[in-house]
Design a binder for these strands. Sequence first.
DNA 1: TAAGGTACAG
Length: 542
Amino acid sequence: MLCESLSPSPVSYACILKACGSLGDLNKGEQIHAQNNQSLFQKGKMLANALLDMYIKNGALDEAQEVFDNLLNRDVASWTLIIGCYAQERQGEEAVTLFERMQCEGICPNSLSFVAVLRAYGNTKASECILAVHSQVHGEPLYKKDIMISNALINAYMKCSLVSKALELFNDLAIKDSVSWNVLISGYAQVGHSEEALSFYELMETAGFSPDPFTYACICKACANLCAVYQCQQIFTNIVNDGLFQRDIVTSNSLLDMLSKCSMLKEAHEVFDRLPSRDIISWNSLIAGYAQHEHFAEALTCFEQMQDDNFAPDAFTFASVVRACGDLGASSKGQEIHVDMVKYGSLETDMVLGTALVHMYATFGMLGEAQDVFDKLPFQDSTSFNALLTGYAQSGKIEFVIELFSKFIEYNIKLDSATFSNVLNMYIHTGLLEDAQLYFKTMVEVFITLLTIDHFNCLADLFGRAGDVEKAALVIKEMPFHSNFAAWITFLGACQNCRHAKLGRWAFENASELTEKDAAAHVLMSNIYAAISTYHMTGAGL
DNA sequence: TAAGGTACAG
């Protein structure tokens, strides 16, 4: 058109901007924006909104906000576009604020505005607001397009785990479309009601709706939650038969993730090899699958291959490989990856990664590095504090443990049950009985709710190792849990060391009540008797 | 010839 010297009209521009939005061609869109008189985009609502939409579809939030701010006449579409933009970007609070501002400025929201704000309400778990919208639209005549509001409502309810409200609305729908089924199934999968997700998938097919990529993503997630191998195979077959495996990357990634999570790693790798195209999510799913099932070397091999294939690792990749390095004890590779994480800026934006790194260095016993990463975190939360404390405890750095623990008390940081076990185990290995008792006493006073039977078993173990089997017995008798096999077998070991036949017999009988014919219990008990008879025979007497 | 609901990775 331009070659033939025709000047584009506002209509041409609107069409071209729409194309830039759906193709993801931000450069072309920016070019059109820059080459024209800015008044073109400020006055006419249609073209201004087309430009706004182009920036939003390209994920250019700042530019979208700027276009919106410079608009002279904002109509309901302009407001809805920017509200939808923030709702989609998980900036729900911002979206809700804009929704309120829009009404203050005298613009009345329409169906589409409600759909946009419902997404924000769902993401921010604003259940009261969702209920308010629901009662507002309730009883209004249901036009066909308003099925979108119903679907958005079901989705928002599910995001707040209001499962029965979502189901009630779904059942009351006069007309359902495939999105209605998808949001319901997706909701069940997200709240962890995976069986229901699969049941509604069956019902959906019975009702005559074919699964689409959205449906497959949801049921793959449900199957992954359940580790349902048989159903995995069924879905795998369906996806291949539908031809979606070749056509839709989200579906193939969902499939890949499902197979990985269900330990079907061989199948996952085959699917990966057969993919017509791959993206970063395909790589991350495969790497995560290997890391989650402790195939750490394979995880790291894939990580190398991914980079050879010119994919830059992101926060998801790092999370898997950091764990793999830690568990493999691959400290130099781990440090290399740390450098990459700094290079890509992943650490500044992601708390999970920082904590994973603290944990990795703690596993290597490189506590200086662990402390350094911890100190540089954007903020320290309970998870990162626990990772650091565990590191010090596992390395037996008592003075650091004591110092850090006092910070837990001072700043009211929630102590993790597993961290507490690690600290107790440190005391077991250092044999500092008095310090351990003091620590346990503080635990009872400050963190009583997280005490488990394992912690009491640790305390009994401490006394047993110190040779005080009477105190150990008292802990077992008086702890607020039913003693388990682990408690008795540890205690029996302590009785063996002290050659305490009476308490040993007591432990043996209790252990036998819980588990019959356990070899370890019999060996320990017979050792006690053998030791005592040797003692008699050597004339030492009892 | 402007806006819309559902989906995949730590």
